[in-house]
Nucleic acid binder design. Structure first.
Length: 623
DNA sequence: CGGGAAATAT
DNA sequence: TATATTTCCC
């Protein structure tokens, strides 16, 4: 039962009550916890009391008033469930309660967290969970707050309180050093030697990745080496090693895609390639959680790249009104902390709760207009964090999509109205009929720059995104979404993209990116309309049950888009006055030939990945 | 020292 | 398994 370790000189005396009707869990968790309490460590004293009956637990708490620091309880117990117990514990003893259950349903987890649980552990409990408990306990005891330290604020990378951190590091280092100690079974079970010198784990958030991409743009892929990228990115705390590692992965991704791109389009029979090119699916910018999109939608897809907004335009995602432009930052995860990024402590700071989940559906709690998503798959090692905080980036130069209002109605215009201050009010009316067809409504007008593709490139050579015959052409490809589970709500989905090369380098990175501010270029450069912050600049994603790759089989054939839900040929757009410098290939062979060109690193580089797509869905997480 | 591949860790 | 870190070699 109780294990007591006497020590007068303890720096920390932590007393934990564990309640679970399963005695195995009790003993396992107990011993795991104790494993942290190194016997020859006089700075740490851990008292663990295990009780099978929640009612007994309450009476124990009463009889030993205020001696406990923390209660860990199972959720499903015969006498009283964990949440009830938690309620009592909160009210009567004002102690934090950690819920621990094999139930990993999001519902339950959410309710628990919302109900005030400190955090939630999904059984089987692993060492990371134990570490989390331990750290939480220390933090509680010492009054230090465990929190994501002001992600939007101080510029500090994600970290728990430094004091706590170092204290724990010290403890762990002591525990972890093998010198003078025989390794025991217990050590193997809970092995925690992470020297303080160990690097914090960097999580490549989408925003950070975008920064990375932009840096590569700026430098040029061929010259982009870690050191230069690092300089260019100007992200505090970022190390060359981080870049090198990421670059390595990125190159692998590029290589893979390039390989795929090189094969004949005739072989690109739908599904096979779709799955092969699954990485692309992440390139679209679907607002999964927030978008009311149901069907026959123009989805912002992946694609086209940074078209300067001087006369150009960028599609912004079809966002719901509350959707904020992502402004996420990079996150550092302490090597010791896998699970401390959530829970009560964070809630106090306005962060959300994480959701252990198998399915990987981020289900971040919305916090006002700055929802933050945290995703911790199960209780495993990774945490995907996404921060949607920050100001709405009303990107100058972006096509303002008259989005939610019309879109929500499901019928009517998707007014794609360029409201850029820097353009000439180009108007491309695209209309979705009641039955979900996309029809032309209004026409693209020329702007001063002379190109009428709606995405004028300011006089610079650029691709049209649909060819002069008015049809979306061969460059339109659809890719199945990588994770159909995401799309359950509205069926399968293909996003198409049209490509445009990057002709404009991003503005120089002048300021040091502190990891917190939204990644916008300096104001004077806003007009470039670059996709800072992670949006795809524009693209049509074409929806619904589309085969994976939608290359036309003949020069006359239109890409097949879905089940007639949305037909590109309905998008009759005015031919340009000035033919684009680069004509899209018309025949299959040409397509085949040009596919490779389409998938050049430059093009790939130009792909901006939206912040709302979980990292696990991002391109080279699949590569 | 720095780049990059490979091994290793989580 | 995926991805971040670390090592190793050039």
């Amino acid at each position: 039962m109780a294990s007591n370790q006497s020590s007068d000189s303890s720096l920390f005396r932590i007393q934990i009550l564990i309640v679970d009707d399963d005695s195995t869990t009790l003993s396992v968790v107990s011993s795991m916890l104790k494993a942290f309490s190194c016997k020859d460590n006089h700075k740490l004293e851990l008292l663990v009391v295990t009780i099978k009956n929640p009612l007994d637990a309450l009476s124990t708490l009463q009889s030993k008033n205020y001696v406990f620091d923390l209660v860990i309880t199972d959720l499903h117990m015969p006498q009283m469930n964990g949440m009830e117990l938690k309620k009592h514990v909160h009210e009567e003893f004002n102690l934090p309660v950690i819920i621990m259950s094999s139930d990993d349903s999001e519902n339950v987890i959410l309710r628990s967290l919302e109900g005030g649980a400190a955090f939630y552990i999904v059984k089987p409990v692993n060492k990371d969970d134990i570490k989390s408990v331990w750290r939480y306990a220390v933090a509680t005891k010492t009054g230090k707050s465990l929190s994501i330290k002001e992600i939007g604020g101080s510029g500090e990378p994600l970290s728990i309180n430094e004091d706590v951190n170092s204290a724990i590091n010290n403890e762990i280092r002591k525990y972890g050093t093998k010198e003078g100690r025989q390794s025991t079974e217990e050590d193997k079970e809970v092995e925690i030697h992470q020297p303080a010198t160990k690097k914090q784990k960097l999580i490549w958030t989408n925003a950070l990745h975008n920064r990375f991409l932009q840096a590569i743009h700026h430098i040029g892929l061929d010259k982009a080496v870690p050191k230069r990228i690092l300089e260019c990115m100007s992200v505090r705390g970022l190390a060359r090693e981080h870049i090198a590692s990421h670059l390595q992965k990125y190159r692998i991704f590029l290589r893979k895609v390039a390989e795929r791109g090189g094969i004949s389009s005739r072989r690109l029979s739908g599904r096979a390639l779709g799955s092969n090119l699954a990485p692309f699916s992440m390139l679209k910018n679907v607002q999964r959680e927030y978008s009311p999109v149901t069907r026959a939608s123009i989805q912002p897809g992946l694609g086209g790249s940074t078209i300067p907004a001087l006369g150009g335009s960028s599609f912004r995602g079809l966002l719901s009104p509350n959707q904020q432009a992502p402004s996420n930052n990079y996150l550092f995860r302490s090597p010791h902390s896998q699970s401390l990024l959530f829970g009560t402590a964070n809630s106090a700071n306005g962060a959300g709760a994480n959701l252990p989940s198998h399915g990987g559906v981020p289900n971040g709690l919305t916090h006002g207009t700055s929802p933050m998503q945290m995703y911790q798959p199960q209780n495993q090692a990774r945490s995907y964090l996404q921060n949607f905080g920050g100001p709405l980036l009303n990107r100058v130069g972006a096509v303002g999509i008259d989005q939610a209002a019309n879109y929500r109605s499901g019928v009517g215009d998707i007014g794609i109205t360029n409201n850029s201050l820097y353009t000439n009010n180009n108007y491309a009316g695209i209309r979705v009929t009641a039955d979900g067809h996309l029809i032309r409504s209004g026409q693209m007008q020329l702007n001063n720059n002379g190109l009428s593709n709606g995405f004028s490139n300011g006089g610079h050579p650029g691709w049209m995104n649909w060819a002069s015959n008015g049809n979306m052409n061969a460059a339109c490809m659809g890719f199945n979404i990588a994770s159909p589970s995401y799309m359950d709500q509205r069926g399968s989905f293909s996003s198409g993209f049209v490509g445009a090369n990057q002709f404009f380098p991003p503005p120089p990175f002048t300021s040091v990116y502190d990891g917190n501010t939204p990644m916008l270029p300096p104001p004077s450069q806003h007009q470039l309309g670059l996709g800072y912050g992670g949006q795809n600049d524009f693209v049509f994603g074409l929806t619904n049950n589309s085969p994976s790759i939608l290359l036309g089989e003949s020069s006359n054939q239109q890409p097949q888009i879905g089940q007639g839900e949305l037909n590109v040929s309905d998008m009759v757009l005015e031919p340009p006055n000035n033919p684009p410098a680069y004509q899209l290939p018309q025949s299959v062979d040409e397509i085949s030939t040009h596919l490779h060109e389409l998938l050049t690193p430059d093009f790939l580089n130009s792909l901006h990945i939206d912040d709302n797509t979980p990292w696990s869905e991002q391109p080279f997480s699949q590569a």
